[in-house]
Computed example of a mutant assay.
Amino acid sequence: MPIIFLRYKKKPWIVKYKEPWSGRPRQRAFAAEAEARVFEDAQAMLYERERAIIKAVRRRRSQGRPASPTVAEVLSRYLDSLGNPSTRAASAYHLRLFSDIFGTRKAHCLTLEDVAAFLDLQAKRGVSKATACRRMGIVRAAYRWASRWGILSVNPLAGLRLPTQAPQTPDPPTAREARLLYAVAAPHVQRVIALGMATGARIGPSELFRLRWTDVDTGAAILRMPNASKGAPLEAREVPLRPDVLRLLRRWEKEDAALGCVWVIHYKGQPVRSISRAWHNALRRAGIGRRIRPYDLRHAFASRALDHDADLKCVAEIMGHRDEKMIVRFYRHTSAKARRKAVNAAPSLGLEKLF
């Protein structure tokens, strides 16, 4: 496992290594040689452990029945059954590592001990518990699907129980935080902040970054937000525009007409696919130390709307969800003001009169 030194890099100590199950080349950069040496030693230990698992997998291949599908075949057929392209792509990404290790094993020979070994390896490689459990959850779902459709006569993962992970979604930006961000953000990020907070659009190329000026009708105060590929029956949904955002849109429309730009969210006339660097720069300049993601603007829309007594079904339709339960389960965040109101909602118990 070679370590090379590249003087011109910010982190000049480079450790190069290969995944034992796939042979894919990997590398990791470090600022200090000592850090690189520690990582190299840890990788060497993991390599030996993973090679042992691979050998055990190969030894047990003969236990499988000729007609039984392999793990890779079950996972591949399960992915083909998923109708949502986004879900299929995300699931394929998470299944790749598991398939690299256990893919050639007969599916019915997979054991809970194999699962435990995989989760242990994920932890040693620094993968979060939530991500590791998500990956195994997809494998479990694939096995349940295969068992339900008769592809597997027995589900060897029927007894698999995964720990429930606490949600890691940060609280959405408050109105004050949004104003602080807007004041210091780059122009294209300012547009994302305003439209994300006001429309609840998905922040990214699936929706908001696809929005064109032909989708915006400032006269009727509505826009046609492109729907993400998540099984929506229509290509776009109508979103009413509030007066303060409408004024901003009219100003931006004039600016972009002079540039001949067709995109509402753009950087110097070019379409945008990511605002990660500009977003973190804005957080730093605004003095906001806590974690806030661009996608949390969508959460902020739902929370603020419901806090001010908006109709739940209308909020779901504006955000592109057919099931309003999704809004309450994933997007609704309670504010400190709302929690205080809940505490004071019931009348006093009168305990102070007893003393």
Rank of each mutant, 00 (worst) to 15 (best):
A132P: 03
R176F: 11
R140C: 03
I151K: 14
A178I: 00
G126T: 04
E177L: 02
P173S: 03
N155Q: 03
Y143L: 04
A116M: 06
I138G: 09
A178W: 05
L162Y: 03
W145A: 06
R179F: 10
D114E: 05
Y143F: 10
G150C: 05
A142F: 00
P172N: 09
K124R: 03
V184I: 09
A185R: 00
A178C: 07
W145Y: 12
A146G: 06
A117V: 06
T111A: 01
A130C: 02
L160V: 12
A166D: 12
K124F: 02
L157D: 08
V127S: 04
L110F: 02
A158T: 08
T169P: 11
A158Y: 02
Q122E: 09
D114Y: 05
W149I: 13
P172Y: 00
K129E: 10
V184R: 00
A158P: 04
A141N: 11
R148E: 06
G126I: 00
P172T: 04
A146W: 01
I151M: 13
T174C: 01
E177Y: 03
A132W: 00
E113V: 01
A175Y: 11
I138P: 01
R134F: 07
T164G: 12
S153V: 15
Y143C: 02
V154P: 10
T169D: 14
R179Q: 15
L180E: 15
F118V: 09
V184K: 11
S147K: 15
A166T: 11
G150S: 04
L181P: 02
K124L: 10
G159D: 15
A142C: 03
A116E: 05
Q122Y: 08
M136K: 03
R161N: 07
A130I: 05
W149R: 15
T164A: 13
S153R: 15
S147N: 15
P156L: 12
R179G: 13
M136C: 11
A185Y: 01
R176G: 14
G137M: 07
L162D: 02
